[in-house]
Design a protein around this nucleic acid. Structure first.
Length: 572
RNA sequence: AGCGGGGUGGGGAAGUCAGGUUAUCCCGCGGGGCUCAUAACCCCGAGGUCGGUGGUUCAAAUCCACCCCCCGCUACCA
């Protein structure tokens, strides 16, 4: 019996682990803003939020190492695939850490842990009779001496005659078709003409799981309705059994002692789905020793798999069906799915240079600027997100700097120059002050609810609304015009700054940690009640507390943005 | 071709599932205020027949039907 996810709410199981995973980046290229937008940033913001709430959170990901593209790339570079994936693993870790993406573990599918788990997994579902063999015909390049995946064969569309189309579909007429139908096929690597060749492959009986999958999709109320409907439609149309082997050497060997299994490996999507579990094993072995029962922990955790919409099929059909077939690992409770990133309203294209790598971006802009902008513009839905330089500039200048930055800075400098940095004793609260305290409490409640629902963009908007009301309060209180220099206003405002800092930490951690230094909240206090979700709406900063000399948290970057705008002007 | 998502004042978005007083927010625009703050902040105002047509209802951006337009996805692309 498999363990159905979906009933666990994050607050329902307060002592257990929360396992947050981010879909694995393929280990043959650099991380770009698209990866970050749909997957790694939302997952990071969310796990930071859970940490503030005092939850035991594991944030898990790693590289997806296997498959033909990596093999070919390694050949091109003249290095073994092991070396290629090792290179990308360390590159990815560097890039992510510069953005403040804090994984508990970022590991790799080409690891003993994952290979072992994958083989065991295969054996288990093989024994249960969910694997069968079938002969298939595939394009084979005689020159490269290998079978070619569909995307490694180009040719002429059998329907509209458009040239240079991938063998599984035509971008010109929009039709999808079986690969063998393509006219005048060419190997994308060497250009020679491939031929169709037979090979025995192993298939997973995905179709047997239609009812169970439907049941899971319908009963798991945590899934996004639009994605659920999308996947249900596929089940209605009939699921095809899934070819889970490939005729290459790079991957997890099929753990069977028979001739048909020789020279073949398991398909990358078979082993990378198990990476989440294998990496969790690795984490516990490293941190708690061999005797930890990871399976038990896994099954008693609340599980979130963050993904981009391009891999919905794999995560809503293949992954759950595999776990159902094997039967001992729980399904995800949540599968937060987000859309793609467009650049100036056009699709990213590496070959056309129309994309932004994370590394290049962070060479120019501070990580928090990117985190803020993307978090604010990426909804909890499959809708695509547009990265637009004008919009980036506007949002930074008007929302981050002029709203949040301004409030924090005006409060801190006021305190510093009129009270020598010492938080004043408040006088009796007036109606305006009491109302502000209510506003603060309401804001915290709203933000918490939205964060729990993973609606991170709306949560951030709500924080901005709160910041606006902070500015409004400060403005109407006019502390500068009062004889006592508005002691109550400053006391409440400083506390509002602390509240804001906690609300904002998951989004812009670098800046907030700087701010905590200015607020004179020592590092040792940062896991205490001073910095935690449970105290976020309290007035924790007491009169007499001394703050440090404030400095500007955000600087405007109009010149740098202008340069980028020039660079990404219409090229066509 | 099929399926999914969307079309809301000049630009970008929220609201639509659970229909209801002057349709919300940011930018931009016009006017005013404040001076603590990174020309930042606060207030007031102009501007929308909520893609089209028809229907249900006392009442529709919101529900139903049909149509138009835009975007995305379609399993061996990881």
């Amino acid at each position: 019996m498999f363990l159905l996810g979906g009933e666990s709410k994050v607050d329902g199981n307060r002592n257990g682990y929360v396992i947050v995973t981010a879909a694995l980046p393929y280990a043959n290229g650099e991380i770009h803003l698209g990866h970050v937008t749909s997957t790694y940033l939302p997952a990071d913001i969310f796990s930071r939020y859970l940490k503030l709430k005092g939850r035991k959170v594991l944030y898990i990901s790693g590289t997806d190492d296997h498959g033909t593209p990596i093999l070919i790339q390694a050949e091109k570079e003249g290095i073994p695939p092991e070396e290629l994936v090792r290179k990308w693993l360390s590159r990815d870790i560097e890039d992510f850490s510069k953005l403040g993406i804090e994984f508990s573990i970022f590991y790799k599918t080409h690891s003993p842990e994952n290979i072992e788990l994958t083989q065991r997994f295969f054996e288990n579902i093989y024994k249960k009779g969910f694997i069968f063999k079938q002969e298939i015909e595939q394009w084979y390049c005689g020159n490269c001496k290998r079978f070619l995946p569909d995307r490694y064969v180009v040719g002429t569309c059998p329907f509209c005659g458009a040239e240079n189309q991938y063998s599984d579909g035509c971008e010109v007429c929009g039709r999808a078709f079986p690969s063998y139908m393509i006219k005048e096929p060419k190997c994308i690597v060497c250009g020679s003409t491939p031929f169709l060749k037979e090979s025995i492959h192993y298939f997973f009986k995905l179709s047997s799981f239609s009812d169970q999958l439907r049941g899971w999709l319908v009963s798991n109320s945590n899934l996004q309705p639009e994605v659920r409907n999308y996947v249900l439609k596929w089940i209605e149309d009939g699921l095809k059994d899934w070819d889970i082997t490939r005729d290459i050497s790079w991957g997890v060997p099929i753990p069977l002692n028979e001739k048909d299994a020789e020279g073949k490996v398991l398909y990358g999507w078979f082993d990378n789905h198990l990476g989440y579990i294998a990496f969790t094993y690795k984490y516990f072995r490293d941190h708690m020793g061999e005797e930890v029962d990871t399976r038990k922990i896994w099954n008693s955790s609340v599980i979130y798999h963050f993904i981009g919409k391009d891999i919905v099929y794999h995560h809503y059909l293949f992954l759950p069906a595999m776990r159902m077939a094997e039967g001992s690992f729980k399904l995800p409770d949540y599968l937060p799915t987000r859309g793609h990133l467009l650049l100036q309203n056009e699709k990213f294209s590496k070959s056309k240079g129309w994309y932004i790598s994370l590394r290049n971006f962070l060479e120019i802009f501070p990580p928090d600027y990117l985190r803020f902008y993307l978090a604010l513009t990426t909804p909890y839905s499959q809708k695509d997100v547009n990265f637009d330089w004008d919009d980036f500039q506007l949002k930074l200048n008007n929302e981050l700097i002029a709203n949040i930055g301004n409030f924090i800075h005006r409060v801190l400098t006021f305190t510093y120059s009129y009270f020598e940095g010492i938080v004043p004793e408040p006088s009796e609260m007036e109606e305006l002050d009491l109302k502000f305290v209510d506003d603060l409490k309401q804001a915290v409640r709203d933000v918490g609810e939205l964060m729990d629902e993973i609606k991170l963009d709306k949560a951030l908007k709500r924080i901005l609304d709160f910041s606006t009301s902070c500015n409004r309060y400060f403005q109407s209180s006019e502390p500068w015009g009062k004889r006592d220099k508005g002691k109550t206003c400053i006391y409440l405002s400083i506390n509002a700054v602390r509240t804001l800092s906690i609300l904002l930490w998951p989004f812009i951690p670098f800046t907030i940690e700087k701010l905590w230094n200015t607020l004179n909240i020592p590092k040792s206090f940062r896991n205490s009640s001073l910095i935690s979700w449970s105290s976020v709406s309290e007035l924790k900063i007491k009169p007499g507390h001394k703050i440090n000399k404030p400095s500007v948290l955000f600087k405007r970057m109009d010149k740098e943005i202008m340069e980028q705008k020039e660079k990404f002007k219409k090229k066509h």
